[in-house]
Write a protein that binds this DNA or RNA. Structure first.
Lengths: 136, 136
DNA sequence: TCTTGACTTGGACTCGGTCAATCGTAGGAT
DNA sequence: ATCCTACGATTGACCGAGTCCAAGTCAAGA
């Protein structure tokens, strides 16, 4: 059932049938769909939903922090509803499968001051790459 | 002077005027140009060079391992000639400036076995984000 | 139920990148 | 030095991902 939908309602997000199906499609763990995949799945329940609406809704969800954008392959961005707990990604270099992972330690601590070039560093995004069990 | 050009010559890479200017444009530290930027700079020295040639040449350089692709913003890929020594990237969230950085420690070691989902993990790509001195 | 501002739509458009047919040339062979 | 030819360069059409806009629709408060 949809945690995401519940949180959105609580925020007073204006709820439309389009936004509801997009939120429902995104629900779950290890979900990393492209905008077109979201559109295709949403269209199974609401055939007239337009691409622009899916892009708008995803963009809104990202800007309010309920969904994060992941771009692991330089192709289409993927949308990750698991924004409530920080995590990194493990990607199969062959088939593109993505898993959420929780490394120990803080990568920010591994960047010495003299390697910061005066930046105020706030975040470290880690992508682990390798071959999944099926592709190895 | 061009280390890259020298390495390419040593590999027996067929040298054309187009390939030479692309290699020259890419020479240096903290260089992270988009394909279009490479094309623009190359065209200053060789006005008739085509976009397709730049893409072909960059693709070739990547596949022989002399240049690496970096995609930090989900927009155009950037090309990094500093492929001979492993490093990560520090990106300004505001202006997009990129610096090469060398964190201590091995991020691969921070991913416990039970978080590997049966993958053979071979690489960790880290992108540090923050604000550069000028943007802060 | 009415009203209205927010949301949705379809289509044109942009940007980054790829492809294929044709032309040109680097560099080995003579 | 020149000739040949396979490999590289060029042009322009094309593609996928994403954005934009003007017009239509509708959720939800009064």
């Amino acid at each position: 059932m949809s945690d995401l939908l519940e949180r959105l309602r609580r925020r007073g997000w204006r709820m439309t049938s389009q936004r509801r199906v997009v939120a429902e499609v995104l629900d779950g763990d290890h979900v990393h769909l492209t905008a077109d995949e979201v559109h295709a799945r949403a269209a199974r329940r609401l055939p007239e939903i337009s691409r622009a609406t899916v892009y708008n809704t995803l963009g809104d969800l990202v800007s309010i922090g309920e969904v994060t954008e992941v771009s692991t392959d330089g192709r289409a961005k993927r949308y990750d509803p698991n924004a409530h707990r920080p995590h990194q990604h493990l990607v199969c270099s062959n088939c593109g499968t993505i898993r959420d992972v929780h490394p120990t330690g803080d990568p920010l601590a591994d960047l010495p001051a003299e390697e910061r070039f005066g930046f105020t560093v706030s975040e470290a995004v880690v992508t682990y790459r390798g071959l999944c069990a099926a592709c190895a």
